[in-house]
Design a binder for these strands. Structure first.
Length: 253
DNA sequence: AAGAATGTCAACCGCAGTCGT
DNA sequence: GACGACTGCGGTTGACATTCT
């Protein structure tokens, strides 16, 4: 007996989202915020399950999403983080504001993995494949554990690093929560009222079609302003701490 | 030009964790 | 502690796009 599905799937729409659905979801969230995903589709008038709405918002509609291909620097950072964190995509994604875990996971599976293979690196351990085989051979032939003292020392260091990592991730999560809890709808209306006298409601078509409403660059500017305003409201002390902790982690490595 | 092969990425599924009762 | 409701995560799928033969 498995768990019941998150929603009654009968009569619910599946597959790609239409512009109209996107529009409905965005308008609803901008005006009401997110309190309970399960209620969102009902209240927004969508024939989707809450889970689907959440995914659509997080991966595609959020105003702070960064569009476009990942840079080489970002790619390198993903590789480093993957070596440290493994397939914990959401943790990796938290290091890239505006990028989603899905995006990074897809990028990893379709491109980086391939690149690693071409370079002769193991995609799990990031070691050169030959070296990895040697290590595995060594473990098989000599499974003796280290001395008790050595084991304790290693465990202690690992725990310390884990605590720092957790703390850092908590800070990043808090930042995301704070961004998410701000009333974007209010901000948006204020922003659009100040900048022009056109329709106050956000229209996805407007942002997709330059001929209607404001130009995409103006919309991007507005979104950037929002992101900047969120940033300016935050204390950066926590991020200074992050920097210190990162240095500690580098030393630990 | 056409079909096959391959790549990309949005969306789905099921599980685990958390929280309230 | 047991249970159900809900959210978030990671693995996987499948539709569409692009490249190759």
């Amino acid at each position: 007996m498995g768990r019941q599905p998150c929603c009654d799937k009968v009569g619910l729409k599946r597959g790609p989202w239409t512009i109209e659905e996107d529009h409905k979801l965005m308008n609803f969230i901008f005006n009401n915020g997110i309190h309970c995903w399960r209620m969102v589709p009902k209240l927004a008038g969508l024939l989707r399950c809450g889970k689907s709405c959440r995914l659509r918002w997080i991966n595609y509609l959020r105003p702070d999403l960064k569009r476009g291909a990942l840079s080489e620097a970002e790619e390198d950072q993903i590789i480093q983080l993957h070596a440290r964190l493994g397939n914990r995509w959401s943790k990796i994604a938290s290091h890239f504001p505006g990028r989603t875990d899905n995006e990074i996971k897809n990028h990893w599976n379709t491109r980086i993995k391939k690149r690693q293979k071409i370079l002769g690196l193991d995609t799990v351990t990031h070691m050169p494949v030959e070296e990895k085989e040697k290590v595995e051979e060594k473990i098989e032939t000599n499974p003796e554990p280290n001395s008790l003292k050595e084991q304790e020392e290693t465990r202690g260091k690992e725990n310390e690093a884990k605590m720092v990592l957790d703390g850092r991730n908590d800070l990043l999560n808090d930042y995301e929560v704070l961004c998410g809890s701000l009333d974007v709808g209010l901000w948006w209306n204020q922003e659009t009222t100040n900048s022009n006298s056109q329709s106050l409601s956000l229209s996805l078509e407007d942002s997709l079609n330059p001929s209607m409403g404001e130009s995409p660059s103006m919309k991007e500017d507005s979104i950037q302003k929002w992101v900047d305003s969120v940033d300016s409201m935050l204390s950066w002390d926590g991020f200074n701490q992050l920097e210190e902790e990162l240095i500690f982690l580098e030393n630990f490595q």
